[in-house]
Simulated scan of single mutants.
Amino acid sequence: MTQLKHLTLALALTVGAAAAAELPPLREVKEIDQNMLWAGLAVEVADECPTLEVKKIKGLSFLWGLKNKASSMGYSDDEIRAYVESDSEEARIRRLGEDYVRHAGFDPKTPQGLCAFGESEIAKGTLIGSFLRSTK
């Protein structure tokens, strides 16, 4: 997840501040939070699985799109940065990811489980799978 944090933070710092508004926390904005989960899962799988890697350009483009979407919704750079840098949000996303992998029938705590999960996502053509490529 750390790599994801750094990529998103770099994007957040390059865009000007958006108008402040009374908005729900980003964790409650499904189109942002859910997509951060998918991107985070892809990064976690690639970090733990020696036969898979993240498609970096695709990932950066996707994260840039999420950052722009949050900005267009009225979230400031500071609000986006706080969400991305939050240890509690990272832990929450990690728990959601582990639950998702487990529910898919794989062990989220082992490289073998994460490799099998990643390969399955690639084969199914999911968003998570679209961020991954095999190095075999």
Rank of each mutant, 00 (worst) to 15 (best):
Q112M: 06
K5N: 07
A82D: 15
R27V: 04
A19V: 07
F106K: 08
L23G: 11
G97T: 02
E44Y: 10
G65N: 13
A17M: 02
V84P: 02
Q3K: 15
E119N: 14
L66G: 05
D87W: 13
H103I: 02
H6Y: 08
V45T: 06
P111G: 00
L23I: 11
R95M: 09
M1V: 00
S130N: 12
Q34P: 00
A20E: 07
M73R: 08
G113C: 11
L41C: 02
L13H: 09
R95P: 01
A12D: 03
I93W: 04
R133W: 01
L11R: 07
D99Y: 01
W38C: 02
D99K: 06
G125L: 13
S134G: 12
V43F: 08
L132K: 01
S120V: 05
T51M: 06
S72K: 09
D77I: 02
L127T: 14
R94H: 05
T2M: 05
I128H: 04
Y83A: 03
A19T: 11
A82K: 11
A10I: 00
F131I: 04
G118W: 03
L9C: 00
S120I: 05
I32D: 10
K58Y: 12
A70E: 00
L26D: 08
R102K: 15
L37Y: 02
T135C: 13
L23M: 14
I93D: 01
T126N: 14
K55G: 13
G40C: 04
T51Y: 10
I128R: 02
T110K: 11
K30Y: 11
K136E: 12
R94K: 14
S88N: 14
A70W: 03
W38E: 09
T2N: 08
P50R: 09
R94C: 00
S71H: 10
K56P: 01
W64H: 10
H6R: 10
A19Y: 04
T2Y: 08
G40S: 14
S120N: 15
K30R: 15
F106H: 13
K5D: 05
E119V: 15
A10E: 11
P25Y: 13
S76G: 12
P50Y: 01
A17D: 12
T8E: 00
G65P: 09
A91N: 12
E90H: 06
I80M: 13
R94M: 10
E85S: 11
Y100M: 12
L23T: 12
T14R: 11
G74C: 10
A123C: 00
E119K: 15
N68E: 11
R102P: 04
E53F: 02
L132I: 06
Q112F: 02
S134K: 14
K56W: 14
G40N: 07
Q112G: 09
Q3A: 14
L9R: 05
T126S: 15
Y100H: 10
F62A: 10
M73L: 15
L4D: 00
V84M: 10
L13F: 03
K124V: 08
W64T: 07
G65K: 01
L37P: 08
Y75I: 04
R94Y: 02
E53C: 01
L60F: 13
E89A: 07
I80D: 04
E119A: 15
T2P: 01
